[in-house]
Computed example of a mutant assay.
Amino acid sequence: MTASPLRAGLLGLGAMGARHARVLGSLEGVELVGAADPFGNPRDCPRGVPLLPSLEALLELGIQMCIVAVPTEEHEKAGLRLADAGVPTLIEKPLAVNCAEGSNLVDAFEAAGVVAATGFVERFNPALMNLKQRLGEGEIGDVFQIATSRQGPLPDNVPNVGVVRDLASHDVDLTQWVMESDYQTVSAHTGARPGHGREDFVAAVGRLRNGVIVNHLVNWMTPQKERRVVVNGERGVLAADLLTADLALYAHGHATMWDELATFRGTTEGEIKRYALEKHEPLWAELCAFRDAVLGVPTEIASLAEGLKAIKLTDALLHAADTRSTVNLSE
């Protein structure tokens, strides 16, 4: 840590911005010096942190890092201004409303030589981090399939994008990150409740370049909240609950019958292991990693280029749904 804490600013005090304010207010090595939101509630700011009317007022405080948590359509303008000011920035997902704006942000921060990240907080979930590590160590052997389920009620702060951009963007990013492979093809079906202009649910399938089959089930129409990632391999299944940060291994068993019947019955149930994980808050871990990146400490953050890649993938899902086709991302 530096002798003096990094002066942090927060742009946007909506639902996600308020969470950032809470964590930044107590993050070691960081001082939240101001939050900017013309419609923000001062009660969402930690005690002693001023609520400011604009990004320009925030920049006047001499901030050394900034979190952008305003509506998606405001990301490009805010990000370009912060890149021009030389301020390291974490921009919440989705990075931008379209690929053109996302590319502008990537180019601006690269040209300025300024640290920047996309807010893919699921990468810092203890269960998912441990799952990725175990896959890398070959715990379940060759992987055949990965399935995600992200379901729940419509959030109180209704997003300005549909469920694909708002929620499925998490799943396409974490899938590529966990499997260390890009998508090769995707197809999808979407739907919306009557009178709702944007899609409320999506069922998607795809294939990664490494041959792994992918399934995504995403909606904001169910009363119970679910966030699960299940990876099926030759020696068993790793299942992560992202809400509780729990991880379990369901190993394949050994058949105790004659060979012909064992082949007919298929895989049998074997040992079940539930791992004891050190559970930290994912947002805290994400902001710690971003703080370290700003300080020049080697760490892993989700780059803006990865945020742009997620936009391209969600665009492909929406195009596949609109045209009822399979999109080949190699072309």
Rank of each mutant, 00 (worst) to 15 (best):
K225I: 12
R265T: 14
A248W: 09
A293P: 02
E60D: 05
R228K: 12
G62C: 04
A100H: 12
K93H: 06
H280G: 11
S330K: 01
G34I: 07
L295W: 01
R207E: 15
L217M: 14
G270M: 09
Q133R: 11
S103G: 11
W258L: 00
D37R: 07
F290S: 08
K132P: 02
T299Y: 06
I140M: 03
V178R: 06
T175K: 05
G138I: 13
L61R: 09
M257R: 00
A96D: 07
P88F: 07
S4Q: 07
P153R: 07
P5V: 13
C66F: 03
N98G: 08
L313A: 05
S330V: 01
T267H: 09
K77Y: 09
H170N: 14
T267F: 06
T326N: 06
C99D: 09
G197R: 11
A108K: 06
A96V: 13
S103I: 05
W284Q: 06
D107E: 13
D259T: 00
L105H: 12
L247Q: 02
V70Y: 02
I272T: 15
N157D: 05
R209M: 15
G40C: 06
M65N: 11
N125K: 03
A302Q: 13
D44H: 09
D315M: 13
W177H: 08
P50C: 13
E260G: 00
L295F: 01
L261I: 12
G34A: 12
R165T: 02
Q145I: 01
G296C: 08
S303A: 10
P282N: 03
G296Y: 00
S187T: 12
V106Y: 04
M65E: 13
M257P: 03
A3P: 00
A35M: 02
T72A: 12
E234R: 09
M179R: 03
T323Y: 04
L317Q: 08
G191D: 15
E139P: 04
V97W: 03
Y183D: 10
Q224A: 09
A112K: 15
A320W: 01
V143R: 00
A262S: 15
I213L: 14
Y250V: 13
R209S: 13
D322G: 08
S325M: 10
T263A: 15
L308C: 10
V70R: 09
F124A: 02
S149A: 13
V143W: 01
P71L: 11
E260L: 00
G79C: 12
I272N: 03
E199M: 10
W258R: 01
T185K: 07
G253I: 02
P46D: 08
V172D: 00
T118C: 12
F120A: 02
E137H: 11
S4M: 08
I63V: 15
A255G: 02
L283E: 06
A188M: 13
V114S: 04
M16E: 08
S330I: 00
R165C: 08
I213P: 01
H75D: 02
A188R: 09
R265A: 11
L95E: 03
V161Q: 15
S330W: 01
A85K: 01
P88H: 09
I146E: 00
A69K: 10
A248E: 15
A8W: 06
S26L: 00
L283C: 04
